[in-house]
Amino acid sequence: MLFKIILVFLGLMALIALIGRALFPSALPRVLRKNSKAPVCAKCGRYLIGRKICDCGGKAK
């Protein structure tokens, strides 16, 4: 009985995770997103490597 409860709980957690990823894809870290292009600065157009904010002060697209 306890084994069934644990399996149902884990199944529900996996279902919630799948729904959350489908509804809020922008909440994922940049590494896990499935964009085909590299992130670039919206202000100057330079590629961003390892940071969310560019040296010019602009933010990633």
Score class of each variant (00 low, 15 high):
residue 1 M to P: 14
residue 1 M to A: 14
residue 1 M to N: 12
residue 3 F to T: 07
residue 3 F to Y: 12
residue 3 F to Q: 15
residue 4 K to P: 02
residue 5 I to T: 15
residue 6 I to W: 15
residue 6 I to E: 13
residue 6 I to D: 10
residue 7 L to N: 07
residue 7 L to C: 08
residue 8 V to E: 02
residue 8 V to P: 02
residue 9 F to S: 15
residue 10 L to W: 12
residue 10 L to S: 12
residue 10 L to T: 10
residue 11 G to C: 12
residue 13 M to H: 06
residue 13 M to I: 13
residue 14 A to P: 04
residue 15 L to I: 02
residue 15 L to C: 07
residue 16 I to H: 00
residue 16 I to D: 00
residue 18 L to D: 13
residue 18 L to T: 13
residue 18 L to E: 10
residue 19 I to E: 04
residue 19 I to G: 02
residue 20 G to L: 09
residue 20 G to Q: 02
residue 20 G to N: 08
residue 20 G to V: 08
residue 21 R to M: 07
residue 22 A to W: 13
residue 22 A to D: 06
residue 24 F to N: 13
residue 24 F to R: 10
residue 24 F to S: 06
residue 25 P to W: 08
residue 25 P to A: 01
residue 25 P to C: 06
residue 26 S to P: 09
residue 26 S to H: 14
residue 27 A to G: 08
residue 28 L to P: 07
residue 28 L to C: 00
residue 29 P to R: 06
residue 29 P to L: 01
residue 30 R to D: 00
residue 30 R to A: 06
residue 31 V to N: 06
residue 31 V to M: 03
residue 31 V to H: 03
residue 31 V to T: 07
residue 32 L to D: 09
residue 32 L to Y: 05
residue 32 L to S: 05
residue 33 R to V: 10
residue 34 K to Q: 05
residue 34 K to S: 05
residue 34 K to T: 09
residue 34 K to W: 07
residue 35 N to W: 02
residue 35 N to A: 11
residue 37 K to P: 00
residue 38 A to T: 10
residue 38 A to G: 11
residue 38 A to F: 04
residue 39 P to Y: 07
residue 39 P to V: 06
residue 39 P to R: 11
residue 40 V to R: 09
residue 40 V to W: 00
residue 41 C to M: 08
residue 41 C to P: 13
residue 41 C to Y: 12
residue 42 A to C: 13
residue 43 K to Y: 05
residue 43 K to G: 03
residue 43 K to I: 05
residue 43 K to L: 14
residue 43 K to C: 01
residue 44 C to R: 01
residue 45 G to R: 04
residue 46 R to M: 09
residue 46 R to V: 10
residue 47 Y to S: 05
residue 47 Y to M: 06
residue 47 Y to A: 09
residue 47 Y to E: 05
residue 48 L to W: 03
residue 48 L to Q: 06
residue 48 L to M: 11
residue 49 I to L: 12
residue 49 I to Y: 01
residue 50 G to Q: 08
residue 51 R to D: 09
residue 52 K to D: 09
residue 52 K to L: 14
residue 52 K to N: 09
residue 53 I to C: 03
residue 53 I to P: 02
residue 53 I to K: 06
residue 54 C to W: 11
residue 55 D to V: 08
residue 56 C to S: 04
residue 56 C to K: 07
residue 57 G to F: 07
residue 58 G to V: 11
residue 58 G to A: 00
residue 58 G to W: 12
residue 59 K to G: 04
residue 60 A to K: 15
